[in-house]
């Protein structure tokens, strides 16, 4: 059984269709990149999967608990003086983020492991607005990972970041996919930067135009 199965999905905004008849199956452990021009529907697809946008018709079957799905989007902090430390932000990703400002022993253990894995131990008590773009992105990955997800969905996570930070970010994703067996679905523009990782490519232009491996995509593109 696939981890995610999308059938005949149609999504529209007030005056136009954003996605038409999307069929897609994603298996456990896959690294899938949704690519396409601006307005191709890749961000809409991601938003529909995580429930931020409602579909007109079609089905999305997630064959794991909702709590095992994590989401990371491009995040622009409008107020640089927003009083929130990296630790506070990461902890909002925990499973039991509902009640009381106290966390379980397990939450604290996962937190420690995640910040060590991402090498952000020294950032935990710093205000989010004082961090660089790359540091902020690591904090947001940590927030996405603290719930120990099986599926990580990303929406243009490197938009606005420079080349080196983008490369570093993709290195972390590849590592998570390989070592943690994390299934990844990411809407992105950066196909060239992913040449070494060779993810599965789903090219969208409101419909699925290409769905296959990275090398096949390079041939198709030519």
């Amino acid at each position: 059984m696939s981890l995610l199965e999308i059938k005949k999905l149609n999504v529209s905004y007030s005056n136009h269709y954003a996605l038409e008849d999307i069929d897609l199956k994603i298996d456990e452990g896959e690294y899938v990149c949704l690519v396409g021009e601006n307005g191709s529907g890749k961000s809409t697809l991601v938003k529909t999967i995580v429930g931020l946008k409602k579909q007109d018709s079609g089905t999305i079957n997630l064959n794991i608990e909702l709590g095992k799905v994590s989401y990371l989007a491009q995040f622009n902090l409008k107020d640089l003086n927003f009083p929130a430390t990296a630790k506070e932000i990461i902890m909002t990703g925990t499973q039991k983020h509902g009640k009381l400002p106290f966390y379980s022993k397990k939450d604290k253990e996962v937190y420690k492991r995640v910040i060590e894995q991402l090498h952000i131990e020294d950032l935990q008590n710093r205000r989010i607005g004082d961090l660089s773009g790359g540091q902020k992105q690591r904090v947001l990955i940590a927030r996405a990972l603290i719930s120990e997800p099986e599926l990580l969905i990303l929406d243009e996570p490197t938009a606005g970041l420079d080349y080196n930070i983008t490369q570093e970010f993709y290195k972390i994703l590849k590592q998570l996919n390989k070592e943690n067996k994390l299934t990844i679905i990411m809407a992105t523009h950066d196909i060239e930067e992913l040449a070494n990782d060779k993810p599965r490519i789903v090219y969208l232009s409101k419909k699925v135009v290409y769905d296959g491996n990275y090398d096949g995509w390079k041939g198709y593109e030519k």
């Binding site: 506070e88 509902g98 009381l100």
Partner: peptide, 8 residues
């Protein structure tokens, strides 16, 4: 107290 983390 009960919804601190969600309110944040």
């Amino acid at each position: 107290a009960f919804f601190y983390n969600r309110l944040f």
